[in-house]
Design a protein around this nucleic acid. Sequence first.
DNA 1: GTCAAATATAAACATATTGCAATTTACTTA
DNA 2: TAAGTAAATTGCAATATGTTTATATTTGAC
Lengths: 106, 106
Amino acid sequence: MGSMDAEIGLSAAAQLFKVLGNESRLWLLRLIDEEPRTVGALAVATDLSQPLVSQHLRTLRQVGLVAASRSGKEVTYRIVDRHVTHVIADALAHVQEPALDPGAAD
Amino acid sequence: MGSMDAEIGLSAAAQLFKVLGNESRLWLLRLIDEEPRTVGALAVATDLSQPLVSQHLRTLRQVGLVAASRSGKEVTYRIVDRHVTHVIADALAHVQEPALDPGAAD
DNA sequence: GTCAAATATAAACATATTGCAATTTACTTA
DNA sequence: TAAGTAAATTGCAATATGTTTATATTTGAC
């Protein structure tokens, strides 16, 4: 016990998880994590509409997961915080574990 | 890069994050993480209604985060996977970092 | 200045999630 | 068996979220 004993921050953590709780946004994060990409490139890679990609990127920006830099007409997004990338990798590792029998008593 | 390069599992990870993206559920998880607790105890501790606690616990069960054991009339919940507790602790650490300037262009 | 390209925003709509109230199920005891 | 307690389920209204469509902004080229 004691590995998640923060009194405050639950609300902020929930907000972060809410942002991460969307497959499209995770996909975008993964692509940006591979290398910084433009909005257009992300729309092509994910086959999502440009406005939808923009919306998701704004959401990701608002919680400080990515940051944008403009170069001419294009805006390139990059990962701000490697820490969160680690959180996601951790979660991916979790969901890929073999399922344990649910509800089993010890 | 490459710290979150799973092709599959994005959907499952998103589902996990969606479940974690709720303050009440995080609260319940934290309490259960301290020690296994009954539904009633959780309802009292969180001041959430019994049905609401039951609902959230079901959600947490469905993604394999907690497991239930019945002892007579009471049902006690416990954490199944310490790994996820670590994910949450990681996220809490993240949101408690000082905020960096968001979306700043170069 | 006009035009085209890249991105952002806004409005509208459909769907999902949340929380509450009422009911039901599961279990124990008398 | 009936009564009492703990937990789970169901139905419903309110809210939040995801997606599309249309429009606006920004920038570079002319």
